[in-house]
Design a binder for these strands. Structure first.
Length: 824
RNA sequence: GCGGAAGUGGCGGAAUUGGUAGACGCGCUGGACUUAGGAUCCAGUGGAGCAAUCCGUGGGGGUUCGAGUCCCCCCUUUCGCACCA
């Protein structure tokens, strides 16, 4: 494999010496002018055609802006600038997602305070972002760490609390022993902490949760009518994990007083109930004690202890089946037979009812379990090639062609019919009902860390848990030097009595603040609501402004947020809608996921030393060439491969445009052939940008420049001027410079998109492809509206065609304006 | 294992609905200009063949006048999810 170039590699292409313009000078000039003239400021109140172009805000890392950030922002900026040229009032804000473990860990590592580091990082980011030439309205920037912002993050928490959507419970949580904090399920990847790769442990702590699972049906249903990337919708659907099935009650005899229990189980295959030969409870199931016979008690207790200690990695990744028999039995309501009740850790308490019916014949996991413990395996479904007696060597899980057997009243039915029928039958006895389950768990939002918004509640000995009144918000995160997390399971804030000791807002007695802070994902779940209302310090989002600017028209971001941020922000928006604060319930009308950039075929990483540092490329080639190259190197929604050598091509393209603008004259008339290509290009670029096909838009402009420069001729004004606007979303500085040079008023971005004239774009002659028996034999120049008869005549005049098309044609296929196929 | 996306020249990638495969760019080859060229400009560039022509979009079948595109089987890469009943 080719050795990836390092950033200090001497083979890094040097900028051309014989440049025709100096991007450094031009870009600095226009960045200054944009600031002076407030070119990028949007009149939020007065806008008549508002268009909100949102990009995912970055975490301001100490390393500075990553090329991935710039790829994302540039893609959004081009879209925003294009919408402005189409006559919209475009609002393109950008802020910083600066709270969270990432910042805090970095601060701990370098021995500084995050409150000191973040402003430095933000200043550096701002410098880099301005260099990149983004059309950002910096008057409306925000940082999630600013009390003016997180005051409202806390307010949102209270809205959920008021609506019963925030609750506290003792929970087995994912605990990262390195970061010393609780992680959301989403932050545990393959059993390890997504941040530091440490295996995650199970711990039982008091945690705050949001009832996002209550919203699962709506979160799922709405996906059908929002304009989002399909890949993102699919990821959300999978994450929500809807399962249609049934809850079936099994009557059991246990050991307690009375001794009779009902064990509800969830299954998506109620049709297989005649094959249910045992029940399994999760080790944490509340009925385990009551169902364990004295003789088995010791064994069961031991097993439960073991699974309790077991870390999530082992529990969730091991496929070895373990379990113990409780000594008790339940009755299968379909077969009326007695079946044993087991406890096993392959059944999870969090999903369904925490209990299952074991159908080893038709579930791979149950098959393994039954094989291990010699439980009966019964066939109740057979495919086309089996019958009721065919032995099972593995679980038969196919449904499509299955027919029921050994199933009493269900025999002969298809799987789907049997599913419905058995639920009807059992429902009559009150033993079953159809239910829908979701994989989505409630959102654990508390963090035992320092660098986040304190959760705004106070605990009082007399009044219990009391909300911090709205007038007392924000609960300001105190500036403390000692913020290192420890192993105690409580936040570092719990070590600062001077902060957490506070009078109860209800009774005035001394109480204690909640010392946990909230998840960073809560900060980012509503930031888009805040941007247009920055400056309105008395409300989270001002009513009229919000009505005018939201929901977001276009949101572009990474698909790594397909299930975290994008789901949480939808949830928070729905809650605020239900609480009457918003009149829409989906935050982003359109969302597109961009791809990711790799470098010379390999993932960029610090250890490999193949990180693309934007500053270096902007310095060497100019922001315009860099932007254009990023958009050209691959399809935007797929990402692409950054090749150092290739950037020279886009730079050459811009130089040539500059040179043509210097050379052009208004003598005589424009060349009709060039004008034809120009108008085809206007149409192509205008079609490509809205669908984010930036690479082909750039290619089309390059093609046009090749046509324009063909031959020794002086380009005409009319051939060059529209090109300045076409390129402007990609290369805004150069476009402004040329716009000014060629007598344009104000900003090129207020000059409108060039008008497309179909008459000028129409071809005088087209190249008709002539095939004989489906093979291309000639290409002939004909008028575009030629009819079949004339086309055949013209084709037969071609020597090659005549040579192959001998005899009477069997069939003629004529696609007007495109192709003629003579079949002989 | 389940789900998504994708396999096209030396390389990154084009090819809105089945209709010229390889646009555009990099690289490479030759030339011009030049003290010089890693600048700029011009020409060429999928493979084989002197040519006519033939072969070519991961592999194998199929549908069609015509398949990179549609259908079936297989292989590979990649990204999610993963004991979710």
């Amino acid at each position: 494999m080719e050795k990836p170039a390092t950033r200090n590699d001497p083979t890094l292409p040097a900028p051309p010496d014989a440049i025709t313009y100096d991007p450094g000078t031009v870009e600095r000039k226009w960045q200054r002018i944009w600031k002076d003239r407030e070119t990028n400021s949007t009149d939020l109140q007065g806008a008549t055609k508002p268009f909100y172009a949102l990009m995912m805000f970055p975490y301001p890392s100490a390393e500075g802006l990553h090329v991935g950030n710039l790829f994302a922002f540039t893609g959004n900026d081009i879209y925003g600038r294009f919408q402005r040229l189409m006559g919209h009032n475009v609002f393109e804000p950008l802020g910083y997602d600066a709270f969270g473990i990432h910042s805090e860990n970095y601060a701990l590592k370098v021995g500084k305070h995050p409150a000191d580091l973040i402003p430095q990082n933000i200043a550096n980011f701002r410098r880099q972002l301005e260099q990149a030439g983004l059309m950002v309205d910096w008057r409306y920037t925000l940082s999630t760490t600013h009390p003016d912002y997180y005051k409202w993050t806390q307010w949102i928490f209270l809205q959920l609390l008021n609506r019963g959507l925030a609750y506290k419970k003792q929970a087995a949580v994912n605990w990262c022993p390195t970061d010393k904090t609780v992680l959301a399920n989403e932050q545990v990847v393959g059993g390890v902490c997504e941040r530091c790769r440490t295996p995650v442990e199970q711990r039982s702590l008091e945690q705050w949760f949001f009832r996002i699972s209550d919203y699962a049906p709506r979160l799922l249903a709405n996906l059908d009518h929002i304009d989002w990337s399909e890949s993102t919708k699919t990821a959300q659907r999978n994450w929500l994990g809807r399962s249609d099935g049934a809850e079936i009650s099994f009557a059991a005899t246990g050991v307690g007083p009375g001794g009779a229990y009902e064990i509800p189980v969830f299954t998506t295959r109620p049709d297989t109930i005649f094959g249910a030969s045992y029940l399994v409870l999760a080790p944490e199931h509340p009925l385990v004690d009551s169902l364990t016979q004295p003789a088995e008690r010791k064994k069961v207790e031991k097993y439960r202890e073991r699974t309790k200690k077991q870390d999530i990695v082992t529990r969730k990744t091991s496929t070895d089946k373990t379990g113990v028999f409780t000594g008790s039995y339940a009755m299968n309501p379909a077969t009326r037979k007695r079946i044993p009740i087991w406890v096993a850790d392959y059944v999870l308490m969090e999903y369904g009812t925490g209990a299952i019916m074991g159908v080893p014949g038709h579930d791979a996991r149950d098959f393994e379990f039954a094989s291990e413990f010699r439980l009966p395996i019964v066939r109740v479904v057979c495919g086309e090639r089996e019958d009721a007696e065919t032995p099972l060597t593995e679980a038969y899980t196919e449904c499509d062609l299955g027919t029921m057997v050994n199933s009493g009243p269900l025999d002969g039915l298809s799987v789907d019919d049997a599913k419905r029928r058995i639920v009807e039958i059992l429902a009559e006895q009150g033993a079953a009902k159809a239910v829908v389950n979701y994989r989505l768990h409630d959102w654990c939002i508390s963090r035992q860390r320092y660098w986040g918004p304190p959760i705004p509640v106070i605990y009082c000995d007399s009044c219990g848990m009391v909300q911090v009144p709205e007038k007392d918000l924000p609960v300001v995160l105190p500036m403390v030097e000692d913020f290192k997390p420890d192993d105690s399971g409580v936040s570092p804030l719990a070590r600062h009595e001077e902060w957490y000791r506070v009078a109860c807002p209800e009774c005035g007695k001394m109480g204690r603040r909640e010392t946990d802070v909230s998840d960073t994902f809560l900060d980012s779940a509503w930031y888009f609501l805040r941007y247009p209302s920055v400056g309105h310090d008395d409300v989270p989002f001002e009513k009229n402004i919000t009505k005018k600017w939201l929901p977001v028209n276009s949101y572009i971001g990474g698909n790594e947020h397909a299930v975290l941020h994008l789901l949480y922000s939808r949830f928070i928006t729905m809650v605020l809608h239900d609480a009457g604060h918003l009149d829409f319930e989906e935050p982003y009308t359109r969302f597109r996921a961009h791809g990711h950039i790799i470098r010379e075929g390999a993932k960029m990483s610090k250890t490999q030393g193949n990180i693309v540092v934007p500053d270096e490329y902007i310095e060497a080639w100019g922001a315009d060439a860099f932007r254009t190259y990023l958009m050209f190197l691959g399809p935007y929604e797929q990402g692409g491969d950054f090749r150092d050598q290739s950037i020279s091509g886009t730079r050459r393209f811009l130089d040539r445009l500059f040179a043509s603008a210097q050379a052009m004259s208004d003598d005589g008339d424009p060349d009709p052939a060039v004008m034809r290509k120009l108008h085809q290009t206007i149409r192509k670029v205008g079609d490509d940008i809205p669908r984010l096909s930036y690479n082909t838009a750039v290619a089309a402009m390059m093609e046009y420049m090749n046509v324009l420069r063909k031959g020794e001729r002086t380009p005409h004004h009319d051939e060059v001027l529209p090109m300045i606007t076409l390129v402007s979303p990609f290369a805004p500085h150069l476009a402004e410079e040329l716009w000014e040079q060629t007598g344009g008023e104000g900003s090129v971005f207020d000059g409108g998109w060039p008008a497309f004239d179909p008459a000028l774009a129409a071809e005088e002659y087209i190249e008709l492809v002539v095939q004989v028996n489906g093979k291309v034999r000639a290409k002939i120049a004909v008028p575009p509206d030629i009819d079949q008869q004339a086309a055949v005549a013209a084709a037969m005049a071609d020597a090659t065609v005549a040579r192959f098309a001998v005899g009477a044609p069997k069939k003629i296929v004529f696609v007007s304006g495109r192709l003629l196929n003579i079949v002989v």
